[in-house]
Design a protein around this nucleic acid. Sequence first.
DNA 1: TTGTAAAATAGTTCATTCAAAAGTATGAGG
DNA 2: CCTCATACTTTTGAATGAACTATTTTACAA
Lengths: 207, 207
Amino acid sequence: MQVANASNAYRLAYETIRNQILTGELTGGTKLIEERLAQKIGVSRTPVREAIRRLEQEGLIQEKRVYKPTIADIIHSSEFRTLIECYAIKKAANNMSEENLKYLKQAVLDAKTGSVEEIVSANNRFHSLIIAESNNPIMIQEAKKMDAIFYLFNRTLILNKRPLLYEEHVQIYKAIEARKPELASRLMKEHLECDLQFMLRYTRKYK
Amino acid sequence: MQVANASNAYRLAYETIRNQILTGELTGGTKLIEERLAQKIGVSRTPVREAIRRLEQEGLIQEKRVYKPTIADIIHSSEFRTLIECYAIKKAANNMSEENLKYLKQAVLDAKTGSVEEIVSANNRFHSLIIAESNNPIMIQEAKKMDAIFYLFNRTLILNKRPLLYEEHVQIYKAIEARKPELASRLMKEHLECDLQFMLRYTRKYK
DNA sequence: TTGTAAAATAGTTCATTCAAAAGTATGAGG
DNA sequence: CCTCATACTTTTGAATGAACTATTTTACAA
């Protein structure tokens, strides 16, 4: 997880709360109480309130509670993400530089072994590198925002050892390297669909 | 423009500032001064600050200034929007109910004549109805957020009487009615591309 | 018990305050 | 006349207090 960038109280509050949600320290549905958060973070209520407003807009907090994605939410996020990634990957297959291809390959390899954190991180890097090829900062930013929500369940994929994750990434990488946009896009779509299905299986178990 | 929903000071501040940005009362680049805003709205600085945090996350405020889209921003937003709308319109062409088709037709007709506000509003309704057919609340919400930015320049299209806007909407409507997803999608793409080009011409003129 | 009203407690909202930072004007020295 | 240091002003950041609201607990009657 990212280290909090605490240039001021508001930022500290924002980063701290956000991290706690993403790492699962604050679990879905938990009621957020300004004063307690303020105390814990070591700032006053004002910056906490500002942080909450921002996180509300970001979707991680709803009605003073930690957002808990429903099954429908997961499906919808996945659909949206698929749209963006499949678009970006076509551009990637057409334009990705040799240098970026190297980074991409590294991300694939890094996700083969290691701790959960390492795998999640390499996994995210893989997808980020592809989205970056959209060359569209607005799209990149939107995808990043969605990541917050995805992060919550990406961990589940790893923790539960979703099979073939590595193999699929290899296939996708090869399609990009071979400059085959349509194939890459199809593989990505299938890959994300598998993620979703795997996710849903586990989500239902909890519920 | 939407009427402010002032159930509390924070909401009042948020809606007021947002509206002022969208209507152009607060123009791009303007420095926002908390105290002056607070005074004008009739609340204290605290809720104003919360509103600003939220608007920052929404993209309408950046570094305490009213967001002023650059040409690159306009191009990127347009690309993103095109991606979403072309996706949604295929679903629309496949699934739109007869009832919704009626509303869509009405939106097309309403945008033929009337005041600028009326045309802008009908125009937005047309696009919203199509996006709604994605049946994906997350996508709908994202598109809505982008609308805030688009609104700023959609007005320009009307004010400057972009030609063929009505005719293109008719063509798109017909493609949906005829249940031709690929055609509809292509027409939408061309339509949005024309919007963009027209926009760029005017944007360059200003600066 | 069970339901309900009153009281107590906890939490939120907003205004106010003060300190720190940023910005601006003024004037002395080049 | 320009430049830079210094004083002054404006603006922001953050804490706190007071008023209001919601929630929980308690107490008592049915």
